[in-house]
Design a protein around this nucleic acid. Structure first.
Lengths: 291, 291
DNA sequence: GTCTATGTTTCTCAATTTGAGAACTTCCCA
DNA sequence: TGGGAAGTTCTCAAATTGAGAAACATAGAC
């Protein structure tokens, strides 16, 4: 026993509270001798006397008083720790990865409702693309992540979170897909390489036999809309994001054929890795789904 | 072990910090097997898994993360408790009894200097008369008390704190002791019966063969001066208090013969009952004495 | 005074917990 | 395919803990 042990403190406190070894023993379901001994050991351990022993009475010393306040704090804290860990209610930190798009368009209402239900959970968001998120899940850097099809994650568990409809984003003055194709030959504006949407955009381009002149990599949907609005090129994004970033007035959305436009966002996590907070998040997703 | 024990938490934290059982063992001067076992026991105890065990690596689970923050707080707190108790520096609460007069005239500079030197000590003052203070010391209600001669306290340790010169307090218009004696036949204004100064005053009255008409018992020196100033009777108080309550303009002090006027204030405490904070107070008294 | 009720402390012994060391297992990497 | 690094399991000895009996102390009651 290198550190003070909490049991000793509990015994000590019981003696103080009950004003005696015997009653403390009753309260703690221990034997008197045990109480006496533990208190003496504690005194020896700390090299102070905690009680004045006079005429069969135990009265706290100044040192004892000092220890008592610590003992109470430690007991409270340890009880709290134990309760937090053993309780079947979510608490602690929930660190999840997410795509920019999901964070922008989908998470606000979800997380707000989640927070209301489980205020004990502190949520941390990490944004990034699908590929890097899957890596982070594997590395235990995040407990789960929202990622978008297509992705490979045979070793992870997944559940469907949201269905998205992707649209081409083009400057206002572009009126047809044909015209958009032409623009794409000049510049494509997209997230970094790991982004699923960008991969879809590239698939569409290649199906249309277009080789983009250059790719402008940006890090936020606001930046992308701004560049597209400025006529720099075309981009791709879910309609839900387009709505969320309020970009309808600046750019226009051109429909893609369903084979390209339909994509789904999943929540993924390590097999067997589940925490109460995470389970609650899945539950919350189902709740939103059924609405 | 009914409560979580801090050693287990220390081991747990070391494993997290060092990222492995082996290094944790080195850090704590324990054997690896011990670390492994304690962590497993802890997990069993709390009925959660704290680490993901995969390919010889230990990675914190969400529950583990939750425990970690508690573990850190508990370790800090217990270390602080131990340090506070074992340190040779005064800290905690120092509860001392004092006479009104001492509190008014002597303690302010003493305690202010004490506080500056030992900011960790929280001082609590209880005021009352000599008799009740001695009782409180005996009952461990206060750790020590300032009391005034004469008092009986064979079972207590004492040290001289202050020397006081008592003076009769009379209304401004009373010019001689004789006149004061006359006034005393009407009314004597004093603290409650336990007060040493009152006893001295009574001794003086009885030596002067005066039987006071009535005794007006008040609880503060300000009240006493006010009554005396109003001509209600005479009182007694140390000159130091007279100065401290700034009563010079309202009443006048008449000298008593030395056998009555000289009295001393002592600090008393239970034999063998000494705390660092109390020792420091005695030290502080000596320091003031030699100034 | 002596007795009794109520406490605390001491002592001994058995049960439990802890720690060391060696053997065993895994996985990674050259 | 054979080390090396890391974690786990096993066994045994040592330390700690808890129960119970007995000794010891004190304050009232008679």
């Amino acid at each position: 026993m290198r550190n003070i042990d909490i049991d000793s403190l509990e015994i000590f406190k019981a003696v103080v509270d009950c004003g005696g070894v015997t009653r403390a023993a009753v309260r703690l379901n221990r034997v008197q001798s045990n109480i006496t001994t533990r208190v003496k050991n504690l005194e020896e351990r700390l090299q102070v006397s905690l009680f004045h022993r006079e005429s069969g009475k135990l009265v706290l010393t100044a040192e004892g008083q000092k220890l008592l306040t610590y003992a109470e704090r430690l007991l409270r804290l340890s009880a709290e720790a134990e309760a937090a860990l053993m309780s079947r209610l979510p608490s602690g930190a929930l660190r999840i990865g997410t795509l920019e798009s999901t964070a922008a368009a989908r998470l606000p209402p979800l997380l707000s409702s989640y927070h209301e239900r489980y205020p004990e959970v502190r949520i941390e968001l990490v944004t990034g693309d699908t590929t890097s998120m899957i890596e982070r899940v594997r590395n235990f850097d995040v407990q789960a992540a929202f990622v978008s099809e297509p992705f490979r994650a045979d070793d992870l568990e997944t559940c469907l979170a949201f269905s998205e409809e992707l649209a081409l984003i083009a400057p206002k003055n572009v009126v047809s897909i044909t015209e958009a194709r032409k623009l794409a030959q000049r510049t494509v504006i997209a997230f970094a390489t790991g982004c699923s949407y960008r991969r879809i955009l590239e698939n569409w381009l290649s199906a249309s036999r277009i080789m983009p002149g250059r790719v402008l990599e940006l890090a936020s949907y606001h930046a992308i809309t701004a560049c597209v609005a400025a006529g720099s090129g075309i981009g791709i994004m879910p309609r839900s994001v387009l709505k969320a970033v309020n970009a309808g007035g600046q750019v226009q959305a051109l429909p893609l054929s369903p084979e390209f436009s339909q994509t789904r966002t999943h929540l993924v996590w390590r097999v067997g890795y589940s925490s109460l907070a995470l389970e609650a998040l899945q539950e919350e997703l189902r709740r939103f789904d059924s609405d």
